[in-house]
Design a binder for these strands. Structure first.
Lengths: 228, 228
DNA sequence: CGTGCCGCTTGATCCTGATCAAGCCGGGAA
DNA sequence: TTCCCGGCTTGATCAGGATCAAGCGGCACG
């Protein structure tokens, strides 16, 4: 079990806490709780009243929505070190806009929104980083909406693969898919069958080499080029 | 031409300026410029460096993206009293994420981002309203992504119509479509043909009565109910 | 008063990706 | 070892909506 010092070092690495003074940190501490979760466990449902936001310490979570017919769209899959639901904090009637479910066993830190909000008041720097982060989120949403409406599924898969390659990489690279293929499909808003077929096609075309969960990209530029 | 006093009253009605002190307002004034625009006029392109954000005073604007094949998706259509591009302000390398083009002749106010940003530093209240607004935007994006991926085009049209009816209205209501049908189609990510067919179908089913740009809804609850 | 243009509608056809169905394979339990 | 079971693949079919094409009516302009 990590002690307070470990926890603090973890928090310091996160944008929501990096700019806090020791005082502010101490004031916040009593309003945070670690909580273990299991794979498959529901953490909260869409529409639940939100009193906390969360930081994933171990494991991973899926945030998703469900249509009337029961199909689910994964919005994000935050993993260790990432936070979620922090933007809900500022709503008048704060309700979670998604379902949250454990993906692998793990542990998260729940921070009471009210406490954090009080603290924001004292630190403009923190305000600024929070706003910058929200902006980034908004930007990512524009991009996602564009790619969902303006592009076909092949494009979305290609785009997803290219986002997986580390910045600055060139030429050949091998990478591992970060989750089950059916989850990736749900994120890209396609069926598992379609994802499978597209990956197969890319394989045939020599753009990727696929073995289980490892994808080798012989020529990143070629893959990039095949986007249009 | 409106004078400074009129302009100030206009600004006061907007969330980005409502919480400002007179001092802050005065400091900001030299960094704002009114600018007329014509229907069809390009205001900025996606990728342009952003030094300002905008408040529409008269007329309307369309914010959109274009796919490789040239089809466009309208993201928003801000009109008088609404602002746009304000969230770009917080990005490290601030570039507009959309194209902006005049829809009807009008006039807008450009506010230099740097000046506003400096001013935010002094007012936590303003920070808070800005953050609340961003949150709302994020929330709207989740909703849009859901409706684009989890629902079919008929649902999206129904949903659009229902958003047009004023809150609290019940029973029968008549309303006017706020823009050309082809623009509405571009916003809903369908073709004009499809929109036309869906409206026709709703007409046949007695859920709406359509004459040119006026839509009469005999029973709002019935329309609501036909969502699922 | 034609003429052409534009926005909208309507019909016919096509294509992408979903759905349905079957089989494969690897891992865990009896 | 055998038997499931769940995740993935592969094939066949289906359907929602895009595309292509034609026609209509209003309106601006010569």
């Amino acid at each position: 079990m990590p002690n307070d010092r470990d926890l603090m070092l973890e928090l310091r690495r996160h944008y929501l806490f990096a700019a806090l003074s020791q005082q502010q940190y101490d004031a916040l501490a009593p309003h945070t709780h670690t909580r273990a979760f299991a794979a498959g466990q529901m953490l909260f449902a869409q529409g639940d009243i939100a009193q906390s936001f969360f930081l994933v310490r171990r494991g991973s979570i899926k945030l998703y929505r469900i249509s009337a017919e029961g199909q689910e769209k994964i919005m994000r899959m935050p993993r260790a070190g990432q936070s979620f639901a922090e933007s809900v904090m500022f709503m008048k009637e704060p309700r979670y806009p998604v379902y949250a479910q454990g993906l692998e066993d793990g542990e998260l830190l729940a921070i009471e929104s009210a406490a954090y909000l009080d603290m924001l008041r004292e630190s403009f720097d923190t305000c600024r980083t929070v706003m910058a982060q929200m902006t980034q989120r908004i930007q990512a949403h524009w991009d996602e909406i564009e790619s969902l409406t303006l592009q076909n599924s092949r494009y979305r898969v290609l785009h997803y693969l290219l986002k997986l390659v580390p910045a600055g990489a060139a030429g050949t690279i091998a990478l591992k898919l970060p989750s089950r293929k059916s989850l990736i499909a749900a994120q890209l808003a396609v069926t598992p069958e379609t994802l499978s077929r597209i990956l197969h096609a890319l394989n045939q075309e020599g753009l990727i080499e696929l073995h289980d969960y490892t994808v080798r990209i012989p020529d990143i530029d070629a893959l990039q080029g095949s986007l249009h």
